[in-house]
Design a protein around this nucleic acid. Structure first.
Lengths: 139, 139
DNA sequence: ATTCATGCAAAGCATTTGCACATAA
DNA sequence: TTATGTGCAAATGCTTTGCATGAAT
């Protein structure tokens, strides 16, 4: 994805592209590492010809989440991670390192999952679900 | 579950029962509200004849997690919630209020879920999974 | 005696906010 | 010029830590 495409992506989601936002989004779109805000800051700060503050990173990430360009992933206490994989997928979390690995739908049996009418019973409107697998990554 | 049973439960999991730990555990075992550490502190402080500090609540919750008496639930940024429902179950999160509702296995279709051999491929050892449904609770 | 739990206050992180400056339409 | 984005630093909120006291074995 080129810088132009990133600007397109931002425009498509109603986010005004700025140099900072473009570089942050570009980084997120090209990584599978589910970075934290600080990971993003560290990776992007050196790429930008202009200074970059943590506040801008946090602001940008929140805007990208609000506009559904990326999604938050919560697997560990105290850390919010970001995922720009826009395809329908789930996650495998290594219980030792905390590393998050994407799991595409074709790697999961017995999909899709749904809630019984008995549970929903006119009381809940189901919008989606997220499966977090956990286990150990072997060496 | 009586106080005696709570002490039994703690002993069974290798946690030395103290008054604070017993009352905290008792509270967790009897609620379905998935409380935060602060919720626990607020609910338990007034029940105890002795003073209770937040540090003790945090210490105790971490010990209970380590000894698998309760589990952490992460659905929102910046908040760790605790769940003493020891049965196999999943969660529904109200996307408006953040409220977490337990979903027992019989309320889910297409269970159990598993990962394909292709994904695991000798590289991952699957220990379990957690499904987080999200949507709106109707009034 | 020795070990371990507790309380308090201080410290630590991740994240948000207030405000001034810079930028773009 | 009007609105919006950015940077900096201060503030906030949740959680952990250090240390002294207190209880239990």
């Amino acid at each position: 994805m080129t810088v132009f495409d990133v600007e397109q992506l931002l425009n498509d989601h109603g986010v005004k592209p700025t140099p900072q936002r473009a570089v942050i989004t570009d980084y997120l779109v090209h990584t599978h590492s589910h970075p934290t805000a600080d990971d993003v800051f560290a990776a992007v700060a050196e790429k930008l010809p202009v200074p970059l503050s943590r506040a801008t990173v946090y602001n940008t990430l929140n805007i990208l989440v609000e506009h559904k360009v990326v999604q938050e992933v919560h697997t560990e206490p105290g850390k919010t991670r970001y995922d720009a994989n826009l395809s329908d997928h789930h996650h495998f979390v290594d219980s030792v390192s905390g590393e998050i690995i994407d799991v595409s739908l074709e790697n999961i049996s017995h999909m899709p999952v749904s809630l019984s009418k008995d549970f929903l019973d006119g009381k809940f409107e189901l919008e989606g679900y997220q499966i977090t697998f956990f286990g150990k990554k072997k060496n």
